[in-house]
């Protein structure tokens, strides 16, 4: 099995989709010659030309909205919002247009648009280039939301996003682009709403998304050395959500820690906690813990940034508190 980076996984999927389907095309800021600010689309303009790898002005509303309009005509545009912080400038088109056309039209219209975006802290860009806003999008009926944590999942979920007849907001994490992992020989689409259990365990379930999946894997290793058996469930798509896999895991381990890089308050983890207590209340031996960023903007000074975002020791502490309650 070949080993590729998360960045290459996204690029390979885009290339394969464009090779096989003239309706797939890309729009975004600096995505052509520059290959995007993260280099994800590097080289694609050489193969597919500027008609299909379209550099746009810095106009996030028009980028998303042009995607909406082209998608309604049956094309399968993939638009890139350079940083997810800037998706705030596209929110009207994503939330009020893309997500609602189908519903408001009584089912006449489909909007098969994919909005790729990336972000995440850990490199001191300050407060406007490092937020995690997946929770905002998960609050919108009509949208789907994917947040892959591995190359295999990035490739397979992006394919499914492109071929979904709904608008998908596809979150990539900046710090995951260089990670390398084995992928299957050929691109395997991954169905939405199916979690991946990265590690089986019996004492506590960690539900992790994005970068925190990798943090959780390291924490599980440490915990094992201390005799704590951790199970890691990565929902991969937040909307739709594989509730069963999460609930079944908690029914087995009787404990649950939820972790993501977004701020804890009103974050995606709050929804997971609510679902778990509703569906597995009698199985819980400890309160559900949430590990996310502190409720501040992302600060610049590395020492402060480090303090705000969640790390292995935060997750480890939550695991230990949870297990101690048994």
């Amino acid at each position: 099995m070949p080993e590729i980076t998360y960045r290459e996984a996204v690029r390979d999927c885009l290339a394969e989709a464009m090779r096989s389907d003239p309706d797939v095309f890309l729009m975004g800021e600096d995505i052509a010659e520059m290959g995007g600010s993260m280099g994800v689309t590097h080289g694609l303009v050489d193969e597919f030309g500027k008609e299909r790898v379209r550099n746009t002005p810095i106009s996030e509303a028009a980028i998303a909205g042009a995607g909406v309009g082209a998608a309604i005509q049956g094309m399968r545009p993939v638009v890139e919002i350079m940083y997810q912080d800037f998706i705030t400038l596209s929110m009207e088109q994503i939330v009020l247009q893309a997500a609602k056309h189908r519903y408001m039209s009584g089912g006449q219209i489909k909007v098969p648009l994919t909005v790729r975006t990336q972000g995440g802290a850990g490199w001191s860009p300050g407060a406007q280039h490092a937020e995690q806003l997946e929770g905002w999008l998960c609050h919108v009926p009509g949208l789907k939301v994917a947040f892959p944590s591995t190359p295999e999942d990035a490739r397979g979920l992006l394919w499914s996003s492109i071929y979904d007849d709904n608008t998908v907001v596809f979150f990539e994490h900046r710090t995951l682009y260089p990670i390398k992992a084995e992928v299957s020989d050929t691109l395997e689409p991954i169905e939405f709403g199916k979690a991946r259990v990265h590690r089986e365990g019996s004492d506590v379930t960690i539900v992790a998304i994005g970068r925190l999946v990798h943090v959780a894997l390291r924490v599980a290793e440490q915990a094992a050395e201390e005799g704590i058996s951790v199970e890691i469930v990565d929902p991969r798509t937040l909307l739709p959500l594989d509730e069963d896999s999460i609930v079944n895991s908690v029914m087995k381990t009787n404990r649950c820690v939820v972790t993501h890089e977004a701020v804890t308050r009103m974050g995606f983890g709050a929804e997971i906690a609510a679902i778990v207590q509703e569906k597995a209340f009698d199985y819980l031996d400890a309160p559900i813990e949430r590990v996310g960023s502190r409720f501040t903007p992302i600060p610049f000074a590395p020492v402060m940034e480090e303090y705000v975002i969640p790390h292995e020791e935060d997750l480890m502490a939550a695991v230990k508190r949870t297990v101690a309650r048994g």
């Binding site: 509303a61 909205g65 042009a66 909406v68 309009g69 082209a70 005509q73 545009p77 009020l96 247009q97």
Partner: peptide, 21 residues
């Protein structure tokens, strides 16, 4: 393609539809 209750909200989509054409 729809009436639109957001003032100006329909314009980006029209650019996209025209782009598709």
């Amino acid at each position: 393609l729809g009436a639109n209750a957001v003032v100006g909200g329909g314009l980006p989509g029209i650019v996209g539809a025209a782009l598709a054409f």
